[in-house]
């Protein structure tokens, strides 16, 4: 029998509880120090902000679980955002433009999976190349300019809300619930964890390893594409420079939320909590009038802290 001393209890708490507790403390501090923090406008603004980074982070989570990574998500969001805007400005129907763009995103994911799973190139290298390639393509197909003149249908979505909850946030909730179900309750979802945990054992057990890899990278690029489309809806225009450094925020959110960069661990709940934490931080920095350059420094330091935490977790797991 395990003893139930407070120390053991603390050790057995899910990792997500730390990030939730930290976020709540941050909220309390901001509620006291920043008068505009707890206003309806600010809260719905934060909800919209967290939606896009949260959706991207959930996709990146899937690649991190299989001990991979996707550094291209920010560029993919920009490229696909520009792509959907170009299609729309050339007179395509909104649904058709969205379907075509999502197809492009899925293709990008499949290419990543092929390079990693069949050609054996490390995911870090493949997606680092993607980070450059898709940013370049976004600049190419936009001619380096902002794409505007979009139909009202696409702009309405991000402005709309249901029972005071912004549509964007509802989209995040839907994505979170679906991916949570997939990861926690389906066999394929469990194989993502198995693959990240011990790829050799997973192969020996006859589980189709490449199919699992494909699903993870397609989910990731697909969700980055969805985020790109939502970003265009929110900004009413598409800029080739949007979504810059989103990959770092996403990875940070995933790891702060309890995932391991070594694979095998991570949850949707933790990832969304991590995304909320980062959104709160940047929102608080604006409200408290912190120099935006300092905000960048703080974010960078947080990422360093996160990697340290990841190592700490690994030690904790091995019982040291």
């Amino acid at each position: 029998m395990k003893d139930a001393s407070p120390r053991t209890l603390l050790h057995n708490l899910p990792v997500e509880s730390y990030v939730v507790a930290f976020t709540v403390v941050l909220w309390l501090i901001l509620a006291v120090t920043a008068p505009n923090f707890l206003t309806g406008d600010n809260i719905s603004n934060m909800m919209r902000q967290v939606s896009i980074s949260g959706i991207i982070a959930i996709g990146v989570l899937c690649t991190i679980i299989i001990a991979g990574i996707d550094l291209s998500v920010g560029s993919v969001a920009a490229f696909c955002g520009v792509l959907v805007a170009q299609l729309l400005s050339h007179g395509l129907d909104v649904p058709l433009a969205i379907v075509l763009t999502l197809a492009a995103g899925i293709l990008i994911g499949a290419l990543n999976a092929l390079s990693v799973g069949k050609l054996g190139i490390p995911a870090f290298i493949v997606t680092l190349a993607g980070l450059q390639v898709y940013r370049g393509l976004a600049l190419l197909i936009s001619g380096g300019m902002t794409v505007g003149g979009l139909p009202p249908g696409i702009k309405e979505f991000a402005r709309g809300s249901l029972f005071h909850i912004p549509n964007l946030f509802l989209t995040l909730l839907a994505v979170a619930i679906i991916v949570h179900y997939f990861l926690s309750f389906t066999r394929t979802g469990r194989y993502l964890y198995a693959l990240g945990s011990n790829s050799e054992a997973t192969r020996r057990l006859g589980i189709p390893v490449f199919r699992i890899t494909l699903i993870a990278y397609v989910l990731c690029s697909g969700l980055a594409t969805l985020a790109g489309i939502l970003l265009v809806s929110r900004l009413s225009v598409a800029s080739p420079s949007m979504g810059n450094a989103y990959e770092l925020q996403a990875i940070a959110a995933v790891v702060v939320g309890g995932a391991s960069l070594f694979g095998g661990r991570g949850t949707v709940l933790g990832t969304v909590a991590g995304a909320i934490l980062f959104t709160t931080m940047s929102n608080g920095a604006v409200l408290l009038d912190v120099d935006p350059f300092w905000e960048m420094v703080l974010e960078g330091l947080l990422i360093a802290l996160v990697v340290y935490l990841d190592n700490l977790q690994k030690k904790r797991l091995s019982g040291v």
Binding site: Y193, S197, N198, A201
Partner: peptide, 10 residues
């Protein structure tokens, strides 16, 4: 196997 085909995180 000697190096055991178990997935550590499961």
């Amino acid at each position: 196997f000697q190096d055991l085909a178990l997935a550590d995180d499961l």
